[in-house]
Design a protein around this nucleic acid. Structure first.
Length: 432
RNA sequence: GGGCCCAUAGCUCAGUCGGUUAGAGCAGCGGCCUUUUAAGCCGCGUGUCCUGGGUUCGAAUCCCAGUGGGCCCU
């Protein structure tokens, strides 16, 4: 439990569904930064307060050292190499769905849960049997909502269930933002275990196949499946993301109905766990930088920047150069410490219709190269538009090459390109 | 040496047949959106209108001189 609304509601929903829940706050960062005091204590308090309201055990898992090593150092190294990493994807891959999961299991939990706006679909038959060429729209909801807060479980039991696994949940927390994950508790309640389809309320989605898939959240605006693109299927099998079935407004409403202390707490933002601090200000605490030149599409020096590593492709603000049309970063040279910009929105360096991915990670199985155009769609930045994939194939060196049906703006090395088949996350790779 | 053009907000400029509190875009700042980085949206302009004189009820707008740029011609 992070101390935010999402993980609070996650815990409440799981309780309502009959799980034996234990709340867990993940302490991954506690250092204050210039201009921003680390909110971890406040978040911890909020999470604990909700746990008390729910009457569930509450714990704190400390991963500061590992978070620093796996996420912060990775982020710093990437920026110094001239790329733009996504620390939250790394956090999910290395911390939440690895360290936290293992710690929770070792602690006796059967499952963990997080407050992500994404859905885990169990027993799916996987993409191989799906019709190709489906339109890239999210599939309709298949879940029934049950806002009952009286603590009673619906008498109805669902069938078809495989997921009946059992378990429990906790939620983790972090600093401001986000996260919401959970730990499970050691002793799943019998009632839960006996229910074929899992607890009621928002039951596990189950299909006839054998795969456990990751799908986009029901709320298209809040969907966070992008950040979970590097989580393994094994980890998903032991995870629950109950709020993925709801929209943010619904989650807020649930929080109010449950009377949760965090019902009206403002959403946090920024680097997960670290807080709402500017990326540049954050990096400046760990790296030294020097001024360099800003050069336009004609080779003209327009001004100076304070370190090429701080800029990312497509960036507009922070350049400090004016005069006519806005300028956007289209490239940079770390060795020369130069940043290249253009004020021509049609500049070819700002648009690409193909991309190459390294470090591929497929959740269930690799994409099928013989797929017809339109079967897959890709997203190259969080909240960026989903673009149709015309062609996808693996290269000799193991990397993957995609040809898009339309141009993508500001393709940026280091960012994750997440492949979707309908609303299912196939996997992702790092843009090079 | 001569002729012409320009000099207005940090930047690029509009406004100059004289007349409300001098405007726009970009940048910057603030906010919204957002668990990365961006983008996008909304809001914010307190400037010696190059300087010094002059004309006028009144000048960024007219005149003179100067300074600083640019172009052209012998």
């Amino acid at each position: 439990m992070s101390g935010g609304v999402d993980s609070s509601v996650t815990a409440a929903l799981l309780m309502q569904q009959g799980y034996d829940v234990t709340g867990v706050y993940m302490k991954n960062w506690s250092q204050d930064l210039p201009g921003m005091a680390c909110p971890w204590k406040q978040d911890y308090q909020d999470a604990k307060r909700v746990a008390v309201q729910l009457g569930i055990p509450f714990k704190l898992y400390d991963f500061e050292k590992q978070y620093r090593e796996k996420v912060v150092e990775y982020m710093i190294d990437e920026y110094q190499a001239g790329r733009t990493p996504n620390p939250d994807i790394m956090c999910n891959q290395e911390v939440k769905f690895k360290l936290f999961l293992h710690a929770a299991l070792a602690d006796g939990a059967d499952l963990i849960a997080t407050g992500h706006y994404a859905r885990i679909v169990r027993g799916a038959s996987s993409s191989s049997s799906r019709p190709a060429g489906v339109s890239p729209k999210w599939s309709p909801r298949t879940i029934q909502r049950d806002y009952r807060l009286d603590g009673q479980f619906s008498a109805r039991e669902r069938s078809g269930g495989a997921g009946g696994a059992a378990a429990l949940i906790g939620l983790n927390a972090e600093t401001e933002h986000s996260l919401r994950s959970g730990v499970l508790s050691p002793h799943p309640s019998p009632s839960v275990l006996s229910a074929p389809g899992g607890p009621q309320g928002v039951p596990l989605q189950v299909r006839s196949g054998k795969h456990t898939e990751l799908h986009a959240g029901v709320d298209v605006n809040k969907d966070q499946s992008y950040f979970l693109c590097r989580v393994t299927e094994d980890a998903l099998q032991k995870s629950l993301m109950p709020i993925g079935e709801y929209t943010k407004p619904e989650v807020r409403e649930l929080a109010r109905k449950f009377g949760l202390y965090t019902a009206e707490k403002k959403d946090s933002q920024g680097i997960c766990f670290v807080g709402n601090v500017g990326i540049k200000e954050f990096l400046q605490q760990f790296v030294t930088s020097r001024a360099g030149r800003i050069i336009d599409q004609h080779g003209k020096v327009l001004g100076e920047h304070d370190g090429a590593l701080f800029y990312t492709i497509g960036q507009r603000q922070g350049l400090g150069i004016g005069g006519g049309l806005p300028y956007y970063v289209v490239g940079k040279n770390i060795d020369k410490n130069e940043v290249y910009v253009t004020n021509d929105l049609q500049d070819s360096r700002l648009w690409h219709d193909e991309l190459t991915l390294t470090s591929p990670h497929w959740i269930n199985e690799p994409p099928c190269a013989e797929s017809p155009e339109g079967r897959y769609a890709v997203r190259t930045r969080y909240r960026a538009p989903l673009l149709g994939v015309k062609q996808i194939r693996q290269l000799e060196n193991g990397n993957w090459h995609l040809v898009l049906a339309e141009e993508v703006r500001a393709l940026t090395a280091g960012q994750s390109a997440v492949l979707y088949e309908d609303d299912r996350v196939v996997g992702s790779g790092i843009v090079i």
